[in-house]
Every structure is written in structure tokens, then in C-alpha cells.
């Protein structure tokens, strides 16, 4: 999908398609199908979360309170803003506004990097506080069910980790797009890569919109 559109020196139309409409529709459908795959991938994690939260809701709520609501909320705001910038970038690419496209892509990359940095800083905090039950690291839990609390943090690291991995992949793709945009590509008929990357970026945002309440907000504060 991303790689299917040739560089701007050649025609925007790949040889297997008859016209641009067909190609654009195919690109979009392809990305939507890929997102449905992603949905099922995260679905497995959401199921595991639901099963274990149902087993012991009190412990999950208590463990949730150990997460830092400030950074979580800030990250939500950052990510939602980046969704806006990527949507505007798609518009800029389609309406052939090169400077705007470069600016908006840069903004999206900046916001995305900020999100990932904050996430890793939170991971570090958890490590320092002994709340990282991975690979035999010490885990301190004073509450009644340490094993179940460890499960919460396992799921926290897994779900946000897989999410952060998706963010990093998105950032790499955005960087490639930025280079192309600086070289004068991705405008008008060639905008499809920006559009499908935008779709992907929105999806990663939506996943976070579910992760945030499931992980940060379930504990009464």
C-alpha cells in the first residue's frame, strides 16, 4: 500500500490498475482490511484483560491507581492532537500544499515522538517503583493479591508496549513520507501514501482511546 505508489517522476498509476480512482479505492480498502487485522490482534489482548479483570476487579482497580493519571491524560491529549495534524496533512497533500504538508508531517512526528518518550519515562518510573514484573525483576506489592496485581502490570506493559511498537512503526513510515515530501513528492495524485498512513495513525490513536480508560481510569480516585 505504502510502497505501491511510484516516485513522482513516473506516473502515479501502477501498471496493474486501469485508472487512479481504482487505485485509490484499492489502497484505501487494503488499509482498512489491514486495520481489521490489527483490531483482531489487539482483540486477543483485550480479551485477556477482560478475563483477568473480571476475576478480581478490586485488585485491578488498586493496581490501576499506581499509574500516573497526569502523564496518561497528557499523552491522550498529545495523541489526539497528532491525529488532527495527520488529517490536515492528508488534506494538504491532496490540495498540493507542499510547505503545509512538510510542516504538518513534522508536527505529527514531533507529537508522536513526545508520546513515546513520555510512555518510556512512565515505564522507567514503574521500574524504579518495582512495579515491572517482567523477566524476574523485583515486584513490590503490599496489597492482598500480589500475583493478580502482577497480572495487571503484565497486561499494562504488554498492551501499551504493543501499542508503542505500533507508534514507532508509524513514526518510521511518517519519516519516510517526510523525506518524500521534502523532495517534492506526495502531492495531488500521489497523496495516497499520506492518506493510508493517516488511516493507520488514526487507528493507533483509537486503540489508545480504549487503553487509557481500561488501564488508567478503572480505579476510583
Amino acid at each position: 500500500m505504502i510502497g505501491e505508489t511510484p516516485t513522482p517522476t513516473v506516473s502515479a498509476l501502477a501498471h496493474q490498475f486501469d485508472d487512479l480512482t481504482q487505485q485509490n479505492e484499492a489502497d484505501d480498502l487494503g488499509m482498512w482490511l489491514f486495520l481489521s487485522t490489527e483490531l483482531m490482534f489487539f482483540g486477543g489482548l483485550f480479551l485477556a484483560y477482560t478475563v483477568y479483570r473480571r476475576q478480581d476487579e478490586a485488585t485491578f482497580a488498586a493496581a490501576s491507581q499506581e499509574l500516573d493519571l497526569f502523564w496518561g491524560t497528557l499523552n491522550t491529549a498529545i495523541l489526539l492532537t497528532s491525529s488532527l495534524t495527520v488529517a490536515l496533512a492528508t488534506h494538504a497533500a491532496e490540495s498540493r500544499q507542499r510547505q503545509q504538508l512538510i510542516g504538518l508531517l513534522t508536527a505529527t512526528i514531533g507529537l508522536g515522538s513526545l508520546f513515546v518518550s513520555i510512555k518510556f519515562m512512565e515505564y522507567h518510573q514503574k521500574y524504579v517503583h518495582g512495579l515491572m514484573p517482567l523477566g524476574g525483576l523485583p515486584f513490590h506489592w503490599d496489597g492482598p493479591s500480589p500475583a493478580h496485581a502482577a497480572l495487571f502490570f503484565d497486561l499494562y506493559f504488554l498492551m501499551t508496549g504493543v501499542h508503542a511498537l505500533h507508534m514507532l512503526i508509524g513514526l518510521v513510515i511518517l519519516l519516510v513520507l517526510l523525506v518524500k515530501a521534502i523532495r517534492g513528492g506526495l502531492l495531488g495524485d500521489h497523496a495516497a501514501p499520506v492518506r493510508v498512513t493517516g488511516l493507520y495513525w488514526h487507528f493507533v490513536d483509537v486503540v489508545w482511546v480504549f487503553l487509557f480508560p481500561m488501564l488508567y481510569l478503572i480505579g476510583a480516585r
Binding site: F41, G43, G44, L134, D154, L155, F157, L158, V162
Partner: peptide, 20 residues
């Protein structure tokens, strides 16, 4: 993708000792 996440969890359990 559901098989993928399942095997990922098995792998994580072996590698990092998470207890899913």
C-alpha cells in the same frame, strides 16, 4: 492475528515470565 497474539503471549511468558 489472533493466533499471532496468542503465540506472542506464549513467547512473552517464556521470555519475561509474565503469567497470562
Amino acid at each position: 492475528p489472533v493466533l499471532a497474539i496468542t503465540l506472542l503471549l506464549v513467547g512473552m511468558e517464556r521470555l519475561l515470565g509474565i503469567g497470562i
